[in-house]
Simulated scan of single mutants.
Amino acid sequence: MDILIKIVLAILFFVCLVDMPYGFFQLVRYAAMIGFAYLAYSANEHTKKNEVFIYVALAILFQPFIKIALGRTIWNIVDVIVGIGLLLSLFKSKVERK
């Protein structure tokens, strides 16, 4: 389940680079908050404290209730960094499983 969530979130973050309606960005914020909260819970179950901290911080950053106004350019940079980070974490977890 973690793999699917990471892939979907990464795709959503990369799609945010395209000019989309405002409702799409709201959907991404809700999906990111829920996805990162689940990933934090899952990381906590596997006692990965560093990952728990990262996912909780990302859930807070993307939460839709109290918006953090960073501007479109900075949000695009954040989206790319987080999207790449999610994809890299997939490869890291794949190497750890071997």
Rank of each mutant, 00 (worst) to 15 (best):
L12H: 03
V95Q: 14
I77S: 00
I54Y: 07
L12Q: 09
L12N: 07
V95C: 02
F65H: 12
T47D: 10
A43M: 07
F14Y: 08
V8F: 14
V15A: 13
K49E: 11
K48Y: 12
I81L: 15
L12M: 15
A43D: 12
I66N: 10
V28E: 08
W75I: 13
S42Q: 12
F53H: 03
G83E: 01
A57N: 08
P21L: 03
A37Q: 02
L12S: 09
G35R: 02
I77R: 01
A69L: 13
L61A: 09
Y38T: 13
I84H: 06
S89A: 13
V78F: 07
N76L: 01
L87Q: 09
Y41I: 09
F91L: 12
A69T: 13
V56C: 05
V28I: 15
L90K: 04
Y22K: 11
K92Y: 11
F14S: 01
A69D: 15
D79V: 05
A31W: 06
L88G: 07
D2G: 15
S93R: 01
L9Y: 04
F65L: 14
I81R: 06
A69C: 05
Y41L: 10
L9S: 04
K49C: 01
Q26F: 14
L27W: 08
A69G: 08
I3H: 09
T73V: 12
L58A: 08
M33R: 05
G35E: 03
I66G: 00
Y30P: 00
T47E: 10
P64R: 06
V15Q: 08
V78C: 11
F36V: 02
Y38V: 14
I66F: 13
N44D: 06
I77D: 00
I81N: 04
G71P: 04
G85F: 01
S89W: 03
E45C: 09
I68C: 05
F25S: 06
E51I: 00
I3G: 00
L17C: 05
P21D: 11
M20C: 10
A10Y: 03
V28K: 05
A57F: 12
L4G: 11
L87G: 06
I7R: 11
L61D: 03
M33L: 10
Q26A: 07
A32K: 04
H46K: 15
K48G: 00
S42I: 01
F36W: 02
V18T: 07
G85N: 03
L39V: 04
I68V: 13
Y38I: 15
L39R: 01
C16T: 08
L87V: 14
V82C: 02
Q26V: 13
E45H: 14
K94H: 10
A40Q: 05
L12T: 03
G35W: 01
F91T: 08
A40K: 03
G23W: 08
M1Y: 05
Y22D: 10
R97D: 12
V52I: 12
G71D: 06
F25Q: 06
F25G: 05
I3N: 09
K94G: 00
M33Q: 06
F53K: 07
L39I: 06
F14G: 00
F13D: 00
M20G: 00
L12F: 11
K48S: 08
F25W: 08
P21I: 02
Y30R: 04
L86M: 14
L9M: 14
K49D: 11
G35Y: 01
A57G: 09
R29K: 15
A59V: 07
V15H: 02
F91N: 08
I7M: 12
L4T: 14
I66M: 10
S42T: 09
F62N: 04
I7F: 13
F62Q: 03
